[in-house]
Design a protein around this nucleic acid. Structure first.
Length: 296
DNA sequence: AACCAGGGAAGAT
DNA sequence: ATCTTCCATGGT
């Protein structure tokens, strides 16, 4: 991690193949997002750290240096924690150069990788947030998913200045199914969310445990949880745990992105998707992420 | 106003 | 192992 602490601000030096503009563009894709806001090419959000809560403003100097100001909070030890969070959020440990090398002649990926050069898998570092977003998003369109997330966050999260912190698992673990169903999600979703919150609260499930396992083992650990099938498991393996080979192959967005990018009239079959994906073995996460980006 | 969306569970084959 | 049905809401 490369960064400088200047007390009232931080500078974070992104690696090659990073474009602040592309990442801002990605983060601006939904007007209904409630976990951060973007205005004038700057990102604003609250972060819950070990010992305090801070509000940060993230802008850029050029396209490779992230410039972080603290709008509230930021004791000495918090600043390194913020730098680490942002480093992870933008997936700055990944070297994208070999991905670009691999895809520059790929019939499907050459277009998205050229168009969105420097885009990162801007993830969901918090495991409960990633799982909850996956569960909330099951079987509904994206706009309703954002509506549900907003209701969930505003009902059970915490507001810091103008910004929301995602609900904590210990809060959700204590709810009844009806408390969540009142937000107009299905009874099942309410059950799944409470179940996952309880597993995290009891530490039976944690990011650390999932990261100790290899990809296939972590996938099995997740799929064994009620409410988490292959789609949600791979979504979380991609966006939170950052296994490079995660691949939600049944995702309808992925099928639509194939259709759009290849100019097909019909969605591709699973076999076709597998065939294309052979070329990007080890980079399925980034391939999926760039293909999704084609859709909005 | 009927019908569809779409991932997961549960039950059936 | 693979299939069918159900969930329950918002969008069309």
């Amino acid at each position: 991690m490369e960064w400088e602490d200047h007390e009232d601000y931080l500078r974070i030096f992104a690696p090659k193949a990073f474009s602040f503009k592309e990442n801002i563009g990605y983060l601006s894709r939904s007007a209904d997002e409630c976990m951060f806001s973007i205005s004038d090419e700057k990102i604003y959000r609250a972060l819950a750290l070990q010992n305090e809560t801070v509000v940060v403003e993230i802008s850029s100097e050029g396209d490779r240096i992230l410039f972080v100001r603290f709008l509230s909070g930021a004791a000495q030890d918090a600043r390194a924690e913020v730098a680490r969070y942002i480093w992870e959020w933008f997936d700055l440990d990944t070297n994208l150069e070999s991905f670009y090398q691999l895809t520059k002649n790929d019939p499907l990926l050459h277009e998205p990788t050229a168009k969105f050069y420097g885009l990162r898998n801007v993830g969901l570092p918090d495991l409960f947030e990633a799982l909850a977003w996956g569960i909330l998003g099951q079987q509904i369109n994206l706009s309703f998913a954002y509506t549900l997330k907003r209701r969930f966050v505003e009902a059970f999260g915490k507001k810091v200045d103008h910004y929301w912190l995602f609900p904590l698992p210990e809060t959700i673990a204590r709810l009844q199914v009806d408390d969540l169903a009142a937000l107009k999600m299905t009874q099942k979703k309410a059950e799944y969310l409470i179940g996952v919150a309880r597993l995290i609260e009891s530490n039976e499930l944690s990011k650390e445990k999932l990261l100790e396992a290899d990809f296939k083992t972590a996938e099995k650990m997740l799929v064994n949880i009620r409410g988490i099938g292959p789609w949600t498991a791979n979504y979380v393996l991609m966006r939170c745990l950052r296994y490079p080979s995660a691949f939600p192959i049944d995702d309808v967005g992925l099928q639509n992105a194939f259709k759009l990018t290849l100019g097909y009239d019909e969605k591709p079959t699973k076999a076709e998707i597998r065939q294309y994906a052979e070329h990007w073995r080890g980079w399925e996460t980034y391939a999926t992420f760039y293909l999704w980006r084609m859709l909005y």
